[in-house]
Each structure stands twice: as C-alpha cells, then as structure tokens.
C-alpha cells in the first residue's frame, strides 16, 4: 500500500468523523417553546395586559394587532438595516423584515395569569430565555408601579 493511499484513507476517516459535528441542533418541540416563552404573573389578566402594553411601548415597539377579548397583542419595530426598505415599501404595511413581539395573556385564577411572550427577529423565531425573562421582569415592575400604595397605619387617638 502506497503512502498516498494511506494518507487518502486517513483523510477520509477524519472527514467521516468530523461530519457529525456539523449536525445542526434539532428544532425545539412545541412543549419546549411553551416552557421557554411562558411565565406566570400574580395579577388579573386585564392588569397584566395593560402592563404588557406599556412595556411593549417602553421597548420601542409599535402595535400591529391587539385583541383585548382574546388577550393578545402583537407589536413590531424596524431594525436600522431594514429602515430604507420599510420606507420604500409602504411603512407599517410594508413587507420589510421587522422584529416582532407577540404577547398572549390568559387567566389562570382570579389573581394569577399566564403570559406567553414570543419574539421574532426578521421573521426568525427566537428562543431566548433571557429576553423573555427581561420582558417578564419589566411587566412585573410596571404592575408594582401601578399597584395602589398600602394604607398608612391608622393613628391611635387619645393615647
């Protein structure tokens, strides 16, 4: 066996060994997506929806759809790179790839709601536990800011 053949066989074996490393990660299952995107909030549904709407605006999105009855809201913002395409293809009605956020709030109990936050960047579904948690934290902060201050302790008279 010539040295060239040995080298060829060796290279082939290495290539075969390296190929599995190129395998892409398997797509997430619906249950996994649900786990990443869903958070529980200790507040009634309508209050959570209002707080979520405020956070959506805080983060620079504009609303593209809203249905209070269903508890859903969708919003978008235009990445700088696609701003020219946005301007040339009709503004909010344009087909420019935008970053979107969809929020779905449903009531679990009178004082607890479930909130699902779905993020997309230029159409691509984003699995980001950190960003979902950041949004959830911002919603909770908004809810705390809106909650009425606790009554001051009543003064004891005649003491």
């Amino acid at each position: 066996m010539s040295a060239a053949r040995v080298m060829g066989a060796l290279c082939f074996a290495i290539a075969v060994l390296l190929l599995p490393a190129c395998e892409s990660t398997p797509p997430l299952s619906p249950t996994q997506w649900n786990a990443i995107e869903t958070r529980s909030v200790q507040a009634p549904r309508d209050e959570v929806l209002r707080a979520a709407a405020a956070v959506i605006l805080d983060q620079g999105y504009y609303f593209t759809a809203s249905d209070q009855g269903a508890g859903t809201m969708t919003a978008a913002r235009v990445p700088l790179v696609y701003q020219d395409q946005y301007r040339r293809t009709g503004g909010m009605r344009s087909s420019a790839p935008v970053d979107t956020i969809a929020v779905w709030v449903s009531q679990i109990s009178p004082a607890e709601s479930s909130m699902r936050i779905q993020l997309r960047e230029s159409g691509e579904h984003i699995a980001s536990d950190e960003r979902v948690s950041a949004f959830w934290n911002a919603v909770q902060r908004r809810l705390l800011a809106k909650s009425p201050p606790s009554d001051p302790p009543s003064r004891q008279e005649g003491v």
């Binding site: 929806l49 609303f63 593209t64 249905d67 209070q68 009855g69 809201m73």
Partner: peptide
C-alpha cells in the same frame, strides 16, 4: 392601523 377600544390602543 390598529384600533382596539377595549384595550385602549391606537396605532
């Protein structure tokens, strides 16, 4: 573009 009176949202 968006008008939801119940949620109080307009775009």
């Amino acid at each position: 573009h968006v008008s939801d009176a119940d949620a109080g949202i307009i775009t």
